[in-house]
Design a protein around this nucleic acid. Structure first.
Lengths: 138, 138
DNA sequence: CTGCTTGCAAAGGCTTTGCAGAACA
DNA sequence: TGTTCTGCAAAGCCTTTGCAAGCAG
């Protein structure tokens, strides 16, 4: 996704495309990724991209998430990952190595979808398959 | 589950049944529950049960989790919940109110279980249906 | 004694907040 | 000039750690 498309994307969500926001969006949307705040900070400086302060990175990621551009991922407590793939999908997580893969969502037969509590409506479903190396002792 | 059973349960997992551990286990196993560390601390003092220090509560919950007596739940980042229901099951989480319900695991037809990455083996699957009140603006 | 537990306080990691200065329209 | 952002530092929350004192066999 080039800079022009990024700006269009941000504007489409009523997000003012400031330099920092565009830079962060470029990292996220160059391909489907899972990034946490400090990875964003590091990549910004490792590449030629302009830097952003910690506060701005957090603000921006929260903003993107509120606007539905990314999806917050709660894999293991401690830190939040932001998933730039907003299509419905599930995850496989290697608890030993931290690797995280997207997998296509398995569409369940309708009789397998649970009844939601009265008065509630669905916001989404998170499915995480946790795996470990076959010869791990954990 | 009475005190005697609790002690037997702990011993069965090679856990020395100290006073603090038994008290914490009683909270968890009186019925299927989802508790985080500070809730455990509060309940210990709110009821006649003997108190435990923060460090001990955390150590104990981690110990129980390592020994498979409880399951760590990562619902929203920030804090860890410990689920005393270790039977295979899924969850419904109300993002507005924080309510959390157990639901029976839907056993998927085998063709819906994803292929795991080569060299890995399954540790478990977490499924969380996120819901909100029907008239919430969130 | 010796090893395991506890509890306090300090340290640590991640995230949010307050606020002054900068940028932009 | 007014609004919106940014960035620094401080504060906040949850959790872990270091270590001395306590307890049990």
């Amino acid at each position: 996704m080039d800079k022009h498309e990024i700006i269009k994307l941000l504007k489409s969500q009523q997000i003012n495309p400031t330099r920092q926001r565009v830079d962060i969006a470029q990292l996220l949307f160059e391909r489907p990724r899972h990034l946490c705040a400090d990875q964003v900070m590091n990549e910004l400086s490792d590449r030629g991209l302009g830097k952003a302060s910690k506060a701005t990175v957090y603000n921006t990621l929260n903003l993107f998430s509120e606007q539905g551009l990314v999806r917050e991922l709660c894999i293991d407590s401690g830190k939040v990952y932001y998933d730039s793939n907003t299509a419905e999908h599930h995850h496989i997580y290697n608890v030993d190595t931290g690797e995280l893969w997207d997998i296509e969502a398995r569409r369940c037969p309708s009789e397998m979808v649970p009844n939601l509590p009265a008065g509630t409506t669905s916001v989404g479903v998170d499915v995480i398959y946790r795996v470990k190396p076959q010869n791990s002792y954990k």
